[in-house]
Design a protein around this nucleic acid. Sequence first.
DNA 1: CGCCGTCTTGCGTGAACCCGCAGCTTGTTG
DNA 2: CAACAAGCTGCGGGTTCACGCAAGACGGCG
Lengths: 240, 240
Amino acid sequence: MKVLIIEDDPLHRSYLHEAVSAALPECGTVIEAENGTVGEKLARDHKSAHIVMDLQMTSRNGIEAARTIWKERPETRILFWSNYSDEAYVRGVSRIVPDGAAYGYVLKSASDERLKLALRSIFIESQCVIDREVRGLQQKSLGQTKGFTDSEYEILVDIALGLTDRTISKRRGLSLRSVQNRLQQLYDKLDVYQSVGDDHEDGRFNLRARAVMVAFLRKLLNYSALERAEAELQEWLDGK
Amino acid sequence: MKVLIIEDDPLHRSYLHEAVSAALPECGTVIEAENGTVGEKLARDHKSAHIVMDLQMTSRNGIEAARTIWKERPETRILFWSNYSDEAYVRGVSRIVPDGAAYGYVLKSASDERLKLALRSIFIESQCVIDREVRGLQQKSLGQTKGFTDSEYEILVDIALGLTDRTISKRRGLSLRSVQNRLQQLYDKLDVYQSVGDDHEDGRFNLRARAVMVAFLRKLLNYSALERAEAELQEWLDGK
DNA sequence: CGCCGTCTTGCGTGAACCCGCAGCTTGTTG
DNA sequence: CAACAAGCTGCGGGTTCACGCAAGACGGCG
């Protein structure tokens, strides 16, 4: 059995190396990659079926790397080992995981025990292991309960990118009014209407910009999600 | 001599501990704090004059912690040890450093040698040590060359927070038109006018939202800066 | 089939935004 | 002092936004 480690930080990388060796004595070789780009390459070269990787790397985002890896070999098992449980990450991951694939999401703050347990569960037993904290978000975000619809999330990203209503309508194939409907719906859910002291109307926000801000503070958006969205946008702009 | 380490990540913390011991044999005791809050407290209790700390901690931001520490004892020497050289961080740090204080900014990607050298320079020689990469940003951001004025940065933050022109004008004591002047100036510098194919006008952006987006992509803004700005905003809103 | 909830679309209005033009106040420089 | 650059301000108008109102489209359910 071969395990590929994709992780930016040298300290974390060697820690992972050790943890993998300890948790999986049957593991013959452990390979290391220091960013997403070489990670993809090594995964291809070694046909490695077992990967532990960080999200948030400078060179190439973990989600990007995972997407191309899974595109080539959907049965690859990936354990995401991340510092954060931002809803943006969780949503990004669950958007790209292939049907029936075994994967995991463990926080770096988890104990050694939990990490090792997750390693065995995923790589040996082919089971999905999602950190409890992450799991909660996933329920909320995918289920409709209290969370955001895909269409709401979509338009949130679009205004964060700085598109006009008209441009959004073209991109998403909607009428101008529909776009604005979704925006209202988004403003509702994000609770942007706190006029603070409703006595005098001066304490008011620019709804569009404010929505992006609170989404960001709530970790619904983060840098990597926006970076990815920007790339998609440029692609679309080039295409037409 | 006592050294206080303030760092989220246990691995990085122990690495730092070791590096400090190796670089400063004359250092008697090394204290560790796992977030900004206890870091502040320990700094107060131990009257520790030498601090190494991370920016970007979950509990309490490094910049916040440094500010209160410096407010109490401006002669404290602080070495910031960070993963990133975002202009937002650099700007945030240089905004709070007291006159004549010795401090440093070293990236985590720096070699052991460089870290140890920086430790000695700052704590023994009272010299400022700024990583080369960071230094470049600092020049640009503080000097007027190619960078952003304080007033431009200020209004950038304000629209990122989601304030209306009117609210900004009240907050900053300007007329509505002046606010809009600064906005124009900001849009210029951020180069928001790329109408892509200028043949047909469809590829257009919402300038306000787009400005925030490109500033974010350029690391002019980041989470911690916005978090801080939001706190200040709430303070101001409560005040009146 | 008829009723109802959800989603989409068009129209119209008032507000906010973007910005050119022009007058005024500063601080700087020859 | 005159001249000039830089910043603040008011005015006016063209555009985009936010949103209420209302008319259709689609799918489930009795």
